[in-house]
Amino acid sequence: MRLTKLSLGIALGLLTSVSAFAAEGGATKRLHPKAAEFEFEGPFGTYDRGALQRGYQVYKEVCAACHSANLLSFRNLAEPGGPGFTEAQARALATAAKIPAEPNDKGETTDDKGAPLMRSATLADRFPSPYPNENAARASNSGALPPDLSLIVKAREGEAHYIYSLLTGFHEKAPAGFKVTEGKYFNPYFEGWNITMPPPLTENGVTYSDGTKATIDQQAHDVVTFLAWAAEPKMEERKRMGFGVMVFLIVLAGLLFAAYRKVWKDAH
């Protein structure tokens, strides 16, 4: 029964997208991402610690309900170049998170009632996943798979700007003639304009402990900063080392140029 409904939905979706294609003359290509500014851009840009910590909160309270971030461990939260939590804070965040436990001494992974055994995470553990496997994730999201967020910023054309535009692009009105597929949402920054993800951010959807006003824009900025760090945790170290390397190479080039001129002076 459910399957029929789903296939009907897909057929309907195909039909509507075809008609939309006809109506718009193929104009469902995603819009160019918005021009937003992030502290981590440019050769000297660094991650804003406050934004990283707030972004982690948005990730944890909003995104993590559906999206995994498999490449991140709790220890990363306290590592240099990251959100700047102390080790104690990171440990507390880990302890608060529950992850599936290893088989117990009797070899069981579930309790008497069949519920999976859980344990507190440690610093060495990865972030918990919202679903046990891909099938479960698809089943809970009308067949769409919420992508893993560890590398999402680097895995999308337009990088941070794209994710930011997507998160803040839900309020835009669909143009006349464009019909949003049932069960999907209009977002002009998404290829095809129909996105399965419901608008994730709401005004004051989270409460920031540092008193920052949690507008949609602010949350998007913060969580994108967090995700940018998640995708490229060594960025600050890279830029810092790059500066040193550049200075060194320029000095070396200068010395070699002088030697080169000196050697060749008589040969021309």
Binding site: A253, V263, W264
Partner: peptide, 24 residues
């Protein structure tokens, strides 16, 4: 020393270009 020093100089220029991509 004629071409060792000349090659070394241009190599370092090339490495600067290279490092620009690696680090930035």
């Amino acid at each position: 020393p004629y071409y060792t020093v000349k090659d070394a100089f241009y190599l370092v220029l090339f490495v600067i270009f290279f490092a620009g991509f690696v680090f930035y």
